[in-house]
Nucleic acid binder design. Structure first.
Lengths: 223, 223
DNA sequence: ATATGTATTTAGGTAAATCTAAAAAATTAA
DNA sequence: TTAATTTTTTAGATTTACCTAAATACATAT
């Protein structure tokens, strides 16, 4: 099913507002969408009849499971396009949001899945926000030292919390940078150091201290 | 100034129909846009009031200079996105038109100019149609043997008219393929052979016969 | 030159997404 | 717990881009 850009914007705004509060008010939505509460009420009725959200007059609004899926698809598109704009076209991360607001409404699913592959399946957009995969699963973000290790986990470095030259020197020495893909094999019990590698490179170990400063994104439950 | 997708589609359709006949009829437009003649009349009045076209009731329609500029911008976007879809995302050339119909309405000029650069300033789309440059100039397409040579001309190979193995062998030997950029330095008076090269490679010559089978695209009047 | 047929426009209407102003419900404060 | 305030909804318009049906203009054939 296809929805108008306007409807998609409502769904997306509700999704984002729901991160803060379970139930979203008409006024909050009106503010988020720069529109009038009366217009919001109108639209909520339409979206309700399409079963994208639960809505009772005066009692706020909540996405249904189906509405959630739509929201995640739009967010996926938005963030992949942002990544494209920055990484491939050389835009600054501050200037891409507006353009992605338009691009996120392009409907082809095949397009976005191919774009994802073309970009190398990035886990986060240029602002560091996670990019849902084609099934709508949000990557999880954690300090690498906190990963549970059921089996070899693949994770992408998305940020480092300590900017000291000493730490950056160490990262550089290990060829670890934002965007680097890492496989984590095991954690040593003695000092909690981690054995990791870049794909098809030799394994090496990093200290727990270092690992505590590296944030990675990875697929939840990718078995 | 920004125009709705619908208006852009009218402008584009008029532009294309004008390639065949100087003045475009209401019915022809209705057919091209899969809409009703009455709807066309309505829209023509709006576009006229925006000075994008000349229109007198019952006398057909013609784009103004301004309308032409808009049309070329849309066509530029359409064709660059098609090129992107095929060359970067691996789509087949038959399946990109529909997606490009959506992408062509994304408004950012900066986006499209950067996309152009990212793609290496292609002169034609995957169907072989010329891509207007950022000033709206359509590349010209000619057999390379027919180029006028005021100075060194840069041109991109877009097709070859003879598919014999003998000719393809010769092209291959000279490393000439679709998409190859060529500089043409001079034509020898004796046999009309041409001296050409790929950028920053040594010059070599090709026969008039070969040159007659190579079609290239180049910027009109790029001084 | 008139009649016939086709093309085009006009008139009046609809759906989507907005708006303002006013009414009604819910919340908060005295 | 009633009054005041805020939030939300309803009612009625507006704009854009369509539509159908009917009227009008143009073109053509006899």
């Amino acid at each position: 099913m296809k929805y108008s850009s306007s409807k998609e914007n409502y769904i997306k705004a509700i999704f984002h507002l729901q991160q803060d509060e379970d139930v979203v008010s008409t006024n909050a939505l009106a503010k988020a969408l720069s529109t009038r509460p009366a217009s919001v009420t109108d639209m909520l009725k339409k979206l309700k009849s399409q079963k994208l959200l639960q809505y009772q007059p005066y009692k706020g609004v909540k996405l249904t499971a189906e509405g959630n899926v739509i929201a995640l698809q739009i967010i996926r598109k938005h963030r992949l396009w942002e990544y494209f704009l920055v990484e491939k076209l050389g835009f600054g991360w501050e200037e891409v949001h507006e353009i992605a607001e338009e691009l996120e409404h392009i409907s082809s699913k095949k397009l976005i899945d191919r774009l994802d592959i073309f970009l190398g399946n990035p886990k986060t957009d240029p602002h560091g926000d996670p990019i849902p995969d084609s099934q709508g699963r949000m990557p999880l973000i954690r300090q690498i030292c906190l990963l549970e290790l059921p089996e070899n986990i693949q994770a992408d470095v998305i940020s480092v919390s300590n900017q000291s030259t000493a730490m950056l020197e160490l990262l550089r020495h290990n060829h670890i940078a934002i965007g680097t893909r890492l496989e984590v094999r095991r954690r040593f019990a003695f000092d909690h150091s981690l054995e990791i590698r870049m794909p098809s490179q030799p394994f090496f170990t990093i200290s727990e201290q270092l690992a505590a400063n590296i944030y990675v994104a990875f697929e939840a439950d990718s078995k």
